[in-house]
Design a protein around this nucleic acid. Structure first.
Length: 491
RNA sequence: CGGGAUGUGGCGCAGAGGUAGCGCACUUGCUUGGGGUGCAAGAGGUCGCGGGUUCAAGUCCCGCCAUUCCGACCA
């Protein structure tokens, strides 16, 4: 616990890994590639869940829950879909163990082989569309707006805490609509919800856009996404929303009767964000002293630290802090007093900084005498002594809002400074080498996209909505292009 | 799936044939308390698993397993 955190500029990935562990967010589990999300990390995830869940419900979505297991035959009903996920599926083949006749322990009972193997869901389109078939007959059943909070498994070769684990938590929305336009509008609406959440709650600026055909979700006609820049300049996909066309409706034969009494296939979307957002959060704001949490997300926004020597001082200081605690709590702030007598103030300062608590108020005998309190803000590491009567709700709100905003501004500044517009391949390679976001013209072919990836490791993160149409020439092939796209190295 | 590394007390590590050690954490007591207090006394380990060499194996040899890091694939 009292170890030094590696420095970001010396070894960014080691810093990240150590920070996750030391700040008590998560740890490696006994199962390879899987992590244990510890109470503090899970509390942050729960905040994300609550806020997103509310936004989904406000826009008419309902939660439901579908099985963890998917019959193998379901997965193969949509050709592109199965191709995209086949290589990373966990497969259940048996349903029973028995004592090992040759010794200790248990073995898989060969007599308990399943007739049809079950896939542990890598995503739930197939099981959900199999179900939607039963739920949809009429245009009156549409739109059908369903979300589920779930775990999924993707058997990746290489894992990193929160960024890529074999099992991860997420939400996946699945909707069915009467028209393509409605479905597209839904996919875009969700992208806006994601962008709003990531920018305003996580304080991370994002670039909205569409994926190229090559990067598109397996089975989608269009994938909308938000891309964020981490402190090392690499891109992290923070959320995706897919327009699935009628692919799944056709694969699972989901048709409805329209007002003209004609059968039509429904139009679909799916969309998700995962515990990967935890990784985005950590890598966007934190520093060499530990986590920095945006106030809107922090499970604890304010930590109160009593300072004292004698029992009497302890009582006096605590009496004042209790009052302060109740006042703050009644105003809706998430606040905690650290009255652990076995730890000294200096230890607590370091500990709560490591955990990223936005504000710290420390109160000791000196302060009581002078009617003052020490205020420390995590983002700037600034300390101030203020008259204690100034510590009112408005002031605290102002501070928290300022921290929330400041984190966004800093991240946005980094994004702007490290986003470079280039027209020649040499500049392109140089900018990618320096881990920048690069806006460049591209001829629109997968062939060129893959070639650039092979030569530079950069991928097209998205075709940004906001880039103006302009005539240009592909940075690699010199063929004509109408718009710059975003290239970067990605997590 | 390729390349590297590591498996020794709860955690982090040292020990390279001959009585299993250190730091942190833990327990008890005192001390200290406004930036990770100091001292003392304790508790805690079949050294990843299986073979082999040897009078003797954390230590040498062979095999296996696991974890982790770096690449290719991906939320």
């Amino acid at each position: 616990m009292s170890k030094k955190l590696p420095k970001r500029n010396e070894n960014y990935s080691e810093w990240y890994q150590e920070l996750v562990i030391q700040s008590d967010l998560a740890e490696h589990s006994a199962v390879g590639g899987c992590m244990v999300i510890k109470p503090y990390g899970y509390a942050i995830w729960e905040r994300m869940q609550q806020i997103l869940d509310q936004k989904f419900k406000e826009t008419g979505h309902q939660n439901a829950y579908f099985p963890l297991f998917i019959p193998k035959s379901f997965l193969s009903k949509e050709a592109q879909h199965v191709e995209g996920f086949a290589k990373e599926c966990a497969v259940v083949t048996h349903h029973r163990l028995k004592n090992d006749p040759n010794g200790k322990g248990v073995i898989v009972d060969p007599d308990a082989k399943l007739e049809e193997e079950l896939i542990v869901r890598p995503t739930s389109e197939t099981i959900i569309w199999n179900t939607f078939k039963k739920w949809i007959q009429s245009y009156r059943d549409l739109p059908l707006l369903i979300n589920q909070w779930a775990n999924v498994v993707r058997w990746e070769m290489r894992t990193r805490l929160f960024l890529r684990t074999t099992e991860f938590l997420w939400q996946e929305g699945h909707t069915a609509h009467a028209t393509a336009d409605e479905a597209i509008a839904e996919a875009k609406l969700i992208l806006e919800i994601y962008a709003d959440f990531v920018e305003n709650t996580l304080s991370i600026p994002v670039i909205k856009g569409t994926k190229t055909q090559n990067e598109r979700f397996a089975g989608a006609l269009e994938t909308y996404c938000i891309e964020a820049m981490m402190q090392d300049g690499k891109a992290l996909q923070a959320g995706t929303s897919h327009f699935l066309g009628q692919n799944f409706a056709k694969a699972f034969d989901v048709q409805f009767l329209n007002k003209q009494n004609q059968l039509e296939y429904v139009w679909a979307t799916s969309w998700g964000v995962s515990t990967r957002l935890m990784g985005a959060l950590i890598m966007s704001h934190s520093d060499d002293n530990g986590l920095i949490l945006p106030p809107q997300l922090a499970p604890i926004q304010i930590i109160l630290i009593p300072i004292y020597k004698t029992d009497q001082e302890h009582q006096e200081v605590m009496a004042k802090l209790e009052i302060l605690y109740l006042q703050l709590k009644n105003h809706g702030f998430r606040v905690k007093i650290d009255d652990d007598d076995s730890k000294r103030p200096g230890w607590k300062f370091a500990e709560w900084e490591l955990k990223g608590i936005p504000l710290r108020f420390a109160l000791g005998p000196k302060d009581l005498n002078n009617h003052q309190i020490e205020v420390f803000r995590r983002d700037t590491q600034e300390k101030a002594i203020i008259p204690i009567e100034n510590l009112v709700a408005n002031y605290v709100s102002m501070l928290l809002n300022d921290i929330q905003k400041n984190l966004f501004v800093l991240a946005q500044k980094r994004l702007q400074e490290r986003t470079i517009f280039v027209n020649h391949y040499e500049e392109f390679k140089e900018a990618i080498e320096k881990d920048c976001f690069v806006m460049a013209h591209w001829d629109g072919t997968t062939e060129t996209e893959l070639l650039i990836k092979e030569e530079t490791k950069a991928t097209i993160r998205c075709i940004p909505f906001n880039n103006p149409k302009e005539i240009g020439y592909c940075v690699r092939t010199n063929k004509p292009s109408q718009q710059r796209v975003l290239f970067a190295k990605a997590y």
